[in-house]
Design a protein around this nucleic acid. Structure first.
Length: 581
RNA sequence: GCGGGAGUAGCUCAGCUGGAUAGAGCAACGGCCUUCUAAGCCGUAGGUCCUGGGUUCGAAUCCCAGCUCCCGCGCCA
């Protein structure tokens, strides 16, 4: 029979079709196809049990009736088990045909789409200018980039937008400090961004000390927002310095943006937001500020969404509304994904509620809005890493340390390599390790910052996956003498390790759709790790370069597909691979 | 106070949205390199899934109550 990339879809369709002719399943049947424990089979259908409960019949009898009605096939064995599970054990021949079929990433990508391509804006990274990126910025950057790659892989059109915090309150203090110290932004020395940060720190201290400094800092901000040329010039310069330092990080991480429209980009659009929301009576004046309440919501009926402060200034709620409007109007976004810290969940919930009302009033199509939030990185004592007091680890330092450690490892394993080659490999390995450490755990969980964790290279880590790829590549290098079998000669999988690996390959589409459904890259990580584990086990038990041509053919095929899937998966995670490690 | 997260092996975490005997990594212990890269493989040990009820064929997962930790809640982002 013909089969899909995701062959659980075939089984599901088959069961639905079969159930249609049986009385007990009148009114539809959801088979609930799941990956099965290997002891029982490859896939299992759990759906009979809830169905039987609903109509008060014996689940085993019902399951048996389905099994009896299934068309005969050589492709799998069906069996009844436990209280009413239906187990499918795929035949070796079927496994072989499936593994043979999906040979190109392009084929996988096409099959993985499963829906119409959409235009998706992904809003991620978004650091504040005038400060260095620290470890707290890693999550949005890494997760956002990975989701962008996932969506592109699945055939969507993606716009990456870095929504810089370049118009906030911090500029009042910074401008004040610059003027008070009388520094020239062109002469900040080797590390200008660090100097800016020092100035900011000094400024903060001063404004805390006395009222008049605070007042002066506020005034600088007002001047800036009013368009004072001197302040605007300084602001521009600060942004340039900041972008240079960000770009260095993005370069290392392999992250690119289509746009970096910061908050400042929308500063002339906030008045439209006020006007329109007032006109449609979505917002109201309250205690001098302009706010939005949502009476239908249990909490936001009382908790306001402040879109204009009582001093008349805009805030991030305003710019976020203006931004959303722009993205729909100019970019025709059909979905917007915001990748931010989980502490902003209230904000985004309010933003989404407000936007839906607003767009409805203006009779505009509202994009699908997704807040992809992640947990906080905590310091030693279980409190969030903060910029102000403690000195969080700088992102650049973390990445350099990762490369450094990987270098030592590479040199230890390959003392003969040139310095350049060591560095090249160390970057792939070290940066891969850091990215994977973040991506491989559920994004909604907080985690404590730990060098040991972020830089680990054994076990469930990127280097382990990269190592599997390198070993496969090594096999292919050794076989490049023309005497090798072709995959057309391959026999079906027989040994336990061949079978386990082939079966795991089959689950790749499930991992992809799971990852896409929840926008959680750790599902993909878990799958890739299991795939690499099954490969490593296979590698240690079944030699590829054997005399028997059908055996060799199969094993080459398994290696080829494992490599393709691992590379495709790692590419989605933003992690590079190496031919040699 | 209101709302939201979290609690699973010594440590760090998975657990496919209610399925079969709860799984990995690290750390510990014992094996495996004259054979395709030992960043690896094989094995041993390790559990009150926070506690107590409930729902049902079946609960780490769902409902209720309680304990502990974290976060958000009027002009920061």
């Amino acid at each position: 029979m013909k089969f899909n990339f995701d062959c659980s879809e075939n089984l599901e369709a088959l069961l639905v079709e079969t159930a249609r002719s049986l009385d007990e399943f009148e009114g539809g049947f959801e088979p609930q196809i799941r990956q099965a424990d290997e002891r029982f089979g490859d896939f299992q259908a759990n759906g009979v049990l809830p169905r039987a409960k609903k109509i008060g019949k014996n689940p085993r009898e019902m399951a048996q009736r389905i099994i009896d009605s299934l068309p005969a096939t050589e492709d799998w064995e069906v069996s009844l088990a436990g209280p009413g599970f239906i187990n499918f054990k795929l035949s070796p021949d079927f496994l072989l045909r499936w593994v043979r079929a999906f040979d190109q990433p392009e084929k996988i990508a096409v099959s993985a789409l499963g829906q119409e391509p959409k235009k998706i804006v992904i809003d991620f990274s978004s650091p504040n200018t005038a400060k260095q990126m620290h470890v707290g910025h890693i999550r949005s950057t890494i997760i956002g980039e990975s989701l962008a790659r996932l969506m592109i892989f699945c055939g969507h059109k993606v716009i990456r937008d870095n929504h810089l915090g370049d118009w906030g309150t911090q500029f009042g203090i910074l401008l004040y400090a610059i003027k008070r110290e009388n520094v020239s932004l062109d002469q900040l020395g080797e590390d200008p961004i660090a100097e800016l940060e020092n100035l900011y720190r000094k400024g903060t201290a001063w404004t805390k000390e006395d009222e008049s400094s605070l007042e002066k800092a506020r005034k600088e901000l007002v001047e800036l927002q009013a368009g004072n040329p001197e302040n605007l010039e300084l602001w521009k310069k600060i942004k340039e310095i900041s972008m240079d330092s960000f770009d260095a990080i993005y370069e290392m991480l392999g992250v690119r943006f289509d746009f970096a429209h910061g908050e400042s980009f929308y500063r002339d659009r906030v008045n439209q937001v006020y006007d329109s929301l007032l006109e449609h009576e979505i917002c109201e004046e309250n205690e001098g500020a302009l706010v939005v309440f949502h009476p239908e919501h249990k909490r936001f009926a009382k908790q306001p969404f402040i879109i204009r402060k009582k001093d008349g200034a805009s805030n991030y709620a305003t710019t976020d509304l203006a931004t959303l409007s722009y993205r729909q109007e100019e970019w025709e976004a059909e979905q917007i994904i915001y990748v931010t810290d989980g502490r902003q969940r209230d904000h985004f919930e309010q933003l989404f509620l407000t936007s839906r009302k607003w767009f409805k009033a203006e009779k505009r199509a509202i994009p699908e809005l997704s807040h992809v939030w992640f947990g906080t990185i905590l310091g030693e004592d279980n409190k969030a890493i903060k910029t102000r007091d403690g000195q969080p680890v700088k992102l650049a330092d973390l990445l350099n340390e990762a490369i450094e450690r990987a270098s030592r490892m590479v040199i230890e394993k390959n003392p003969e390599l040139t310095e350049d080659e060591v560095t090249r490999r160390a970057k792939v390995i070290g940066l891969g390790a850091v990215k994977y450490a973040d991506l491989s755990q559920d994004r909604t969980l907080d985690y404590a910052f730990s060098w040991e964790k972020l830089l680990a290279m054994q076990g469930n880590t990127a280097p382990y996956l990269q190592y599997a790829v390198a070993r496969i590549s090594s096999i292919f290098r050794k076989m490049a003498d023309g005497t090798t079998s072709t995959i057309e000669e391959a026999r079906p999988p027989q040994t336990p390790h061949e079978r386990t690996l082939a079966r795991k390959l089959l689950f790749f589409p499930l991992a992809l759709s799971q990852t896409r459904r929840d926008l959680k890259p750790h599902f993909l990580c878990t799958y890739l790790y299991e795939l690499a584990t099954d490969f490593s086990s296979f590698y240690n038990h079944d030699k590829v370069m054997v005399e028997d041509r059908p055996t060799q053919g199969l094993r080459i095929l398994l290696c080829l597909r494992t490599k393709t899937f691992l590379c495709a998966g790692l590419e989605i995670l933003g992690i590079e691979t190496l031919e040699k490690m």
